[in-house]
Nucleic acid binder design. Structure first.
Lengths: 338, 338
DNA sequence: TTGTACGCGTTATCAA
DNA sequence: TTGATAACGCGTACAA
C-alpha cells in the first residue's frame, strides 16, 4: 500500500509541495483559505505526516530511549511511567529496552538507540556490567546519558540515585534501636553499587553502635523469594542464632518470612525483619514488613527534568547533575518490638 | 556537534560512499580488505548508522507501538515485557504510550504512532473510549492493529483477550459451591467489555444455580483499594446481608478485606472473597485471596506472534485472528469454606 | 569488486 | 503568499 505524500496533495490542488508542507505545519505565511483547502484534501486522502522524512531533514528527532533490566519490576515500571508522563506531552516518543541483567543486551540496546538517533538515553545498568565503554560511546557522541537507580561510574553523565548507604544505615539502626544484636544481612550482588552501599550501610551502623560484625550472619542472596528461603534455611540449619534480618530487597525477606512462619518462629519478637523497596506486598502481608521507600516517582521526575534542562539550554556545553535521593524507612509490624 | 556520515568515511579512504554503505551492511560484494579498512575508520570516527535515513530510503521501519492505560499496572507491564522480549531480538524497536484511561490521549498517541510510521500498533483501550474512528484510521492505513486484554469492536483487527465471562462464571460458581447464597458484586465500568463480561458471568452463574439476583448486592465500584472500602461500607451500613463478594479486580477486594478485618468479620467463614487478576499481594496477604489468573505472558506472546505472522506473510491480504484465552481460578483461603 | 546517479518525503532557502 | 530547488544520509539499480 502506497502511502500518501504531500506531493499527492499538491498535485490534486495544483499547488507546490512546499506550500502544502507549510500549510500542514500551520505556517503563518500561508493564506487561511489555501490552508483550509490543503487540510481538507489531506483528511480526505487519509494523509499522515511522515516523521521519518521530517527527522532526516530537520535533524530534530524528539525521541528518547530508556534501558532497564526488566520493565515489569515495580521500581522500573514506576520510573518509566513518570518519564513518559512528563515527556510525552512535550512531543517526545519513548523507546524502551530490556537488558535482563545482561551486559550484551545493554551494549546492543545502546548501539540501537544511537542508530535511532535518540536525543537522550536513560539507563539503569545491569548487575553484570563492569566495563563501561558502551556508555562512553554515548557521551562522546554528545548525547545526554542519564542514570537512574543504578549508575555507572563515568564522566560526563547525570544521575539520580537513592542514598542506599544511608537508607541501609537507618534500617539497621532501627533494628538496633529495637534491641536487636544479632542482625543477619542478605548480601546482594556486589557488582552493583546499590548493593555495595546497602551492605556498607549495614556494616557502618553495626560499627557505630559497637556491635561486632559476625561473618556467619552475612549471607549472599539474590533478589527472589526462593533465594530468601534458601538463605534463611542456611542460617537456620547451621544453628546460627539471630534476632533480625536486614535484606537489601523485599523479595528475599518475603521468602525468609515464609520459612520463619513454617518454623513457627515469631515475628518480630524472635526475629525482626526489614526489607528494601516497598514492594506492594510488604504492606498487605499478614505481618506488614518494614522496608525502605525509594520514591521512584521522584527519581523519574528528576531524571526527566535533567534531560529537559540540558536540552533546552541554548549553550552547547552540557551540564551534569548527580542527585541523591533520600530513602524513607517505613516502619511496620515486622520490626516493631517496642 | 556534526554527526559522522558515510561520506566522511568515503572521503578519508578515497572510495565511494556506496562502497562504504555496502561494507557497513556487510554486503558480500565488498572485498574483505576494503571492508576491514572501512569498519576500522568507522570505529575511529565513532560513526554510527543513521537509521532515520535508512528508514526513509528502504521504507522498512522496524518499529512497533504499544498503547496502554498505565504501563506500571501489573498486567500491562507484564504484557509489554513479553512483547519486548519477543520483538527486540528480531530488531524491532518498541515505542510505548500511556493513555491514563483518557480517549484524547489514545487519539493523540495513535496519530503520533502513525506519523512515526510504526509497523504495528498494540492497544489496550481506555475505559472511556466509545468512538473508534481513530482505530479505523490505523486499519485503513493498512497497519496491523492488535488489541490485548481490552478490545474495540471493529473490523480488520486482531485481538487476544481473556474469557472474562467464563472466568467470572467460574469464580461465582466456586462461591456457590462453597455454599454462598448472598454474593455481592463490585460492578466495574460498563463501558469496558471486560467488566461487562465479568458482570454477565456473575449473573449467569446465579441464574444457572437458581439464586435470585438481588440489586442491593450489586454495587458500582472502581478498581482501587479506596473504592473497595467505600463499596463494602455502603453494603455494611445499609445492613445488607451477604456471605460473599466477587470483585472483577483485586484492588477493590483488598480494600473490602481491610474493612472486613476492621469489623472483625471472619473470612471466609462469614464472608468469602474472590478477586480478579492475580495481583501479587493476593498471594502474600494474611488470608490469601482467591483470584483469576489472566496469564498476561500468554496474551503478550500471542499478540506478538499475530504481528509476526501478518508481517512475514508474503501475500498482501492481512489475516486477522481473535483469540480468547481461558483464565485460571486460583482458589485460596479467602473462599475455602469446605 | 567498485563507482555513478538518483530518490525516499520532507523542509529550508531563495527568488518571484 | 507561493514556487523552485536543494539537501538531510542512506541504499540500490545500473554501469564500469
Amino acid at each position: 500500500m502506497k502511502r500518501v505524500t504531500i506531493y499527492d496533495i499538491s498535485e490534486i490542488l495544483n499547488i507546490s509541495p512546499s506550500t502544502v508542507s507549510r500549510a500542514l505545519n500551520d505556517s503563518p505565511s500561508v493564506k487561511t483559505k489555501t490552508k483550509e483547502k490543503i487540510i481538507e484534501v489531506a483528511k480526505q486522502l487519509n494523509y499522515f505526516h511522515n516523521k521519518t522524512a521530517s527527522r532526516l531533514k530537520t535533524g530534530k528527532n524528539n525521541t528518547v530511549g530508556i534501558i532497564v533490566p526488566y520493565i515489569n519490576h515495580s521500581i522500573f515500571s514506576a520510573i518509566i511511567q513518570v518519564i513518559e508522563e512528563i515527556l510525552a506531552p512535550l512531543g517526545y516518543i519513548i523507546l524502551i529496552c530490556q537488558t535482563y541483567e545482561k551486559t550484551v543486551n545493554e551494549i546492543k540496546h545502546i548501539q540501537s538507540l544511537l542508530t535511532n538517533q535518540v536525543e537522550c538515553i536513560f539507563v539503569s545498568v545491569t548487575m553484570e556490567t563492569i566495563n563501561y565503554d558502551h556508555f562512553k560511546k554515548v557521551t562522546s557522541a554528545g548525547i545526554p546519558l542519564i542514570f537512574f537507580d543504578r549508575k555507572a561510574d563515568i564522566e560526563n553523565v547525570s544521575s539520580v540515585i537513592l542514598n542506599d548507604f544511608k537508607s541501609a544505615y537507618k534500617a539497621t539502626e532501627h533494628l538496633i534501636e529495637q534491641g536487636c544484636k544479632r542482625i543477619a544481612h542478605f548480601k546482594g550482588n556486589q557488582n552493583l553499587e546499590i548493593y555495595r552501599n546497602r551492605y556498607d550501610g549495614y556494616l557502618k551502623a553495626l560499627k557505630d553502635y559497637k556491635i561486632p560484625v559476625d561473618p556467619d550472619l552475612i549471607i549472599s542472596c539474590k533478589s527472589s523469594i526462593e533465594e530468601g528461603k534458601r538463605a534463611f534455611n542456611e542460617l537456620y540449619n547451621a544453628n546460627i542464632s539471630l534476632d533480625a534480618i536486614f535484606s537489601p530487597n523485599d523479595h528475599a525477606i518475603l521468602g525468609a518470612y515464609q520459612e520463619i512462619k513454617n518454623y513457627n518462629i515469631k515475628v518480630p519478637e524472635e526475629i525482626a525483619l526489614v526489607g528494601f523497596s516497598n514492594e506492594i506486598f510488604t504492606k498487605y502481608i499478614e505481618i506488614p514488613i518494614t522496608t525502605v521507600f525509594q520514591n521512584p516517582e521522584l527519581m523519574g521526575t528528576k531524571a526527566a527534568k535533567f534531560f529537559l534542562e540540558q536540552t533546552n539550554k541554548e549553550t552547547t556545553d552540557i551540564t551534569h547533575k548527580n542527585e541523591i535521593i533520600e530513602g524513607t524507612l517505613l516502619v511496620r509490624a515486622s520490626s516493631k518490638k517496642r
